[in-house]
Each structure stands twice: as structure tokens, then as C-alpha cells.
Design a binder for these strands. Structure first.
Lengths: 243, 243
DNA sequence: CAGGGCTGTGACGAATCGGTGACATTCCGC
DNA sequence: GCGGAATGTCACCGATTCGTCACAGCCCTG
């Protein structure tokens, strides 16, 4: 039930201003995260060669390679660790640049520490499955009712042998549901965990993805045995018909 | 009251509507949490000066300082207690405002009590690895006269082995009755604790739900042994047939 | 810039829940 | 016992929620 048995998430902070770095590190540590620090891009890249982490907090203005460059390099190396950019400028174009270079979120200085922590939490929640979960072979593949889903490739084979190509959202929703196997997951939970805390598709969107998952994996989509509706709240996923 | 209350998380509810407050408090108590209440922001801040708690349930619309203000003040004071906002408006922008003022989660009224409890559990679980205490447990499962009820999933297995899917109101009424096991609970009590806020249905509505519960769980619904009528007052729940 | 997959929305019917009222039944005081 | 009140029981209606489909943007690819 509780996948949180894992160790505390590890966060790397890349920041050249020692004061800001100290404050950020302190707060992250107080939140219970493991923390490491780097003061420029090359140091960060070197560190990341040998170690994986759950999140990189990356200042844009760094001596040497700037934050965008660091992030782009990482992505080119196939490293998909989530990146939260920090920048002094409030220019919206920077946000776009940040996202284009492969970042996941963006925060303009000066920021409230509380908001910073909020974003960290949101990103880690959203990307949890991708790293901690898919890194583990156990949860990389999910079997239920004759179906088999491989989350690494977004590929599945349905009970009737049919090959299925899941989309990203489909896979993420399924993943979140499966991780809370047996427990109720509200639509809002799904929205937050799959889409993020500041995106607001209507809750009907969730219903539609459930519909698609049922079509893919239920023998009788009209009488679901795995993707169950909890009236007025959300959905519940069961691997087996009736536990 | 609760034997395992040793490490029960303490929740502060800040809500000016007494009906809603009563419903929320009752349900949190039934889940096994320690609870306290405040009816406005200043009262809450004063209380929090002297005491720590695991979670603050904070209405946005309060007399005097509003919820956002209370939360912001707390954060400025270095208080990082998780905050769950309640608000009448469904505006997504409010959600962002809530989160950015330092809240951890957000729920729009009118909400289903089940979803509310879901979120409380989620936040406290998130906080658990930090405090490493086990927490909750609570009255998740109730057994009586061969029946077994799982309040988390609103599912039950009746004495005859039949699977039952409880509705939200059915489950809530049963939970309140069971929580006051053996004691008389008046219809007005039930209305307040289960419905909590918003609407006040007639007392006959309560009778109807009692009827449904009897049909589900009594061997002989006409001669109830668990859901007893106290004539002129209300109802009484007994786990065992003989008092 | 044309085409195709992914995503999100709106619309509409179906299903469910909650709540009410009508009537039968039971209980209480007399 | 008798009458009135409270409760048991049922059937039904409105509101909400959900399932389902069709379609319109969007982004990427060619």
C-alpha cells in the first residue's frame, strides 16, 4: 500500500550565491530531504555523472555554463531528473527558455521560501513514479487481470493479446491508480499528481482517461472490475476482481 | 477515549460555521485524531502560539483575518504546520492563492466528507516520514454481528457473506452510531454530525437511512438487534445483540 | 502547411443518491 | 382497548454525477 518506504528524496542544489544556497539547503533539509550542493555548472555535471537524485534546483545565472546549458546537457545525456530553475530575472521569456531546455518548473527570485518548498513538493510528487518507481523493476511492469503494462516503454499487452501503446497521460494515471491500489483516489488527487498543482483541466478530463483505460484493459468496459468508480469522489484500482 | 491515542495526530479546525465545524470535528475524531477548534483567525493564531499540531484545517472565509492571511502570518512566524484550505468558491485561482500563501492543499465547498478525510490522510501521511510516527489506524474497520465494514472503501460484507457497497451517507451514519456505541444518538445529533453544513433535511431522512442499514446488516430487519430505536429520541447502536 | 496523434471540452443520456411524502404499523399515556 | 403521535416502510422525484461520444485545439512530423 504505502510505497513511501523508500529513503528520503535526494535534492541537488546548484547555486553560486553561498547565502541563498545555505538558506535553500537548510530549508530542504528541514523538510526531510537529503541534500547536496554544487556552486557551478561543471561541478554539478560532474556530481551527476556519479550520482542520481530526485530533483535538481538549478540557478540560471552561474559562472561558466549557465543553468540552461547544464539542463540541456543533462537531457542530451539522457538524464531526465526533474529540474527547478531559479532566476533573478522575471522575464517570461526566461520561463520559456527554461522549459525548452528541459526544465520542469521555474521560480523567479526573490521568492518566498514557502513557495519554493511548495514547488519542490509538487514536482517531487508529480515525478515520483518516474524515478523512484520506474527505477525499481518491481513497479516498472504491472500485471492485472491478464493485462501487462510496461511503464518504461508506455507499452502494454491487453488480456486478449492485443498490443497497446499508452500515451503519457494514460500511463501516468494508471501508475498513480496502481500505486494506491485498493485505495480511493480522488479526481483532484489525480489532477495534481498527473498534471501538476497549477494546471486545471476539468475533472471530466479524468473521467475520459478512465474511459480510455477501461476500453484498453477491461474485458467488459461497461462493467469494470479493475477501474472502479467511487461515486462522488473518484476512482479505485483493483488488480484482482474482488479482494 | 481512544486507547491508541498516544501518538494520534492533533488537528486544528478553524471554521466559523458551527454546523460545518461540528461535522468536520466529529468525523476527524471518529478517524482517531485529536481535535481542537477555533472560530476565527485571531483565535487560531493565539491558540497556535501556545500549541503545535499536525494539521490545520482552515476556512478561507473567516470573520476578521481571512484564511490566506492566517496562513501567511503563520509562515512568517516560521510555523510550517501543514494547512488544508476550505473555501466556498471553486475558483481555480483561489487554489493557487491558497498554495502560494503557504498552504498544502485546498478543498472547495461543498465537498464530500469522504474526500475531505482522504485529503487529511494524504497530508498527514506525507508528513509521517518526517515524524516517523505510525499514526492513524483509527476505526477503519468495524465488525458487529458477523458483519464487517471497511470505512475507507465504503465496502462491507454482511453476515450472510453478501458484498455491500455503502453510500457515503450510509457509511457516515453508521460510523457516527458506532463511534457512540451503546449510547443514544438523537436524530438532531446525526443530522449535525453527518450532514454538517449546508442543508438540513427532515428528521424522517434519518429514519430512512436507519432502514437501509437494517436491511443491509440485520438478520431480521423487523426485529433489529444492532440498530435499536429509542422511542421519542433517536437511535442506539449495539455491536452485540445483548446489552 | 498538411496530416495524424494526443489532450481537453462540451453535450447528452443514463445511473445513482439523497430526500420527501403517503400510508401502514407500532408504541405510549389514559 | 383507544386515540394520537412517533416510527417503519415503500415508492417516487429532482439533483447531482458519471459514461460516452464527437469534436476542436495543439504540437509534432514529414
Amino acid at each position: 500500500m504505502n510505497p513511501a518506504a523508500q529513503a528520503a528524496p535526494h535534492v541537488l542544489v546548484v547555486e553560486d550565491d553561498p547565502h541563498l544556497a545555505a538558506g535553500v539547503l537548510e530549508n530542504l533539509r528541514a523538510e526531510g530531504y537529503e541534500v547536496s550542493a554544487a556552486s557551478d555548472g561543471e561541478q554539478a555535471l560532474a556530481w551527476l555523472k556519479g550520482t542520481r537524485c530526485a530533483l535538481i534546483v538549478l540557478d540560471v545565472m552561474l559562472p561558466g555554463i549557465d543553468g540552461f546549458g547544464v539542463c540541456r546537457t543533462l537531457r542530451e545525456q539522457g538524464n531526465n531528473t526533474p529540474v527547478l530553475f531559479l532566476t533573478a530575472r522575471g522575464d517570461p521569456a526566461d520561463r520559456v527558455r527554461g522549459l525548452e531546455s528541459g526544465g520542469d518548473d521555474y521560480l523567479a527570485k526573490p521568492f518566498h521560501l514557502q513557495e519554493f518548498l511548495l514547488r519542490v513538493r509538487a514536482i517531487l510528487r508529480r515525478w515520483d513514479w518516474y524515478h523512484s518507481a520506474s527505477a525499481t523493476a518491481a513497479t516498472a511492469v504491472l500485471s492485472f487481470g491478464g493485462n501487462e503494462v510496461d511503464f518504461r516503454a508506455f507499452r502494454a499487452r491487453a488480456w486478449n493479446g492485443e498490443a497497446q501503446e499508452l500515451t503519457e497521460k494514460e500511463a501516468m494515471i494508471l501508475k498513480v491508480l496502481a500505486e494506491h491500489g485498493g485505495e480511493i483516489v480522488s479526481r483532484e488527487d489525480l489532477l495534481e499528481k498527473v498534471w501538476g498543482y497549477d494546471v486545471f483541466p476539468s475533472t471530466r478530463t479524468v473521467d475520459n482517461f478512465i474511459l480510455r483505460l477501461r476500453k484498453r484493459f477491461e474485458r467488459d468496459p461497461a462493467n469494470p472490475r479493475h477501474f472502479l468508480t467511487v461515486w462522488g469522489v473518484g476512482y479505485r484500482f483493483l488488480k484482482d476482481g474482488e479482494p
